[in-house]
Amino acid sequence: MMLAILAAAAVAAPADLSWMAGSWAYEKDGVVTRETWLAPLGGTMSGAGQTNLPGKPARSEFMTITVAPAGLTFTAYVDGQAPTPFVAVPSDPGSAVFENRAHDFPQRVMYRRCGENLCAGIEGVAGGKPRAEHWTYSRVSAPE
Rank of each mutant, 00 (worst) to 15 (best):
Y77K: 01
A58V: 12
P57A: 05
G115Q: 04
P57W: 00
W135M: 14
V87G: 02
G30K: 01
G71L: 04
L17I: 06
S23C: 10
A7F: 03
L38D: 15
G94W: 07
V125K: 02
A12R: 11
E133Y: 12
V87L: 01
N117F: 09
T84Y: 07
G127D: 11
G94V: 09
Y137E: 04
E99Y: 05
M63V: 14
P93W: 01
A58W: 02
V140K: 11
P14E: 00
P93Q: 09
S18F: 08
E116M: 09
A96H: 07
V31C: 03
L72C: 10
L72W: 14
E35A: 11
P106E: 07
Y26A: 12
E116P: 12
E123L: 13
A88E: 05
P40Y: 11
P57M: 04
V109W: 05
R101E: 10
P69H: 11
A58R: 14
F86A: 00
K56N: 07
V31W: 08
G121T: 05
E116Y: 09
R59I: 09
M110N: 06
T73K: 02
A4S: 15
N100Q: 03
A10K: 07
A21G: 00
E99R: 12
W37I: 03
A120P: 07
P85C: 11
R131C: 07
M20R: 00
P57L: 02
A4I: 01
Y77E: 07
K129G: 08
I65D: 05
E27W: 01
F86M: 08
A88K: 07
T64E: 07
A9R: 09
P85M: 00
S18P: 10
Q107T: 11
F74Q: 05
Y26D: 15
S141W: 08
D92H: 06
Y77W: 02
K56F: 10
L118V: 08
A15D: 13
S138N: 07
Y111E: 04
A102E: 07
W24H: 05
A12E: 15
R108F: 09
P85V: 04
G49Q: 01
L118T: 04
A13N: 03
A39W: 11
T75E: 02
R59F: 11
W135G: 01
A9P: 03
G43P: 01
A8N: 03
V125R: 00
F86H: 02
C114E: 15
R108Y: 06
D104G: 09
L6Q: 10
K56C: 04
A88I: 00
R34F: 03
M110S: 09
G55Y: 15
D104F: 06
E133V: 13
T33E: 13
V78W: 04
M45T: 03
V11H: 02
S141Y: 06
G55I: 08
G43C: 01
A4V: 12
S18N: 13
A102P: 06
E99G: 00
A9W: 01
G47K: 12
G121E: 05
A12H: 13
G43A: 01
D92W: 03
M110F: 14
I5F: 13
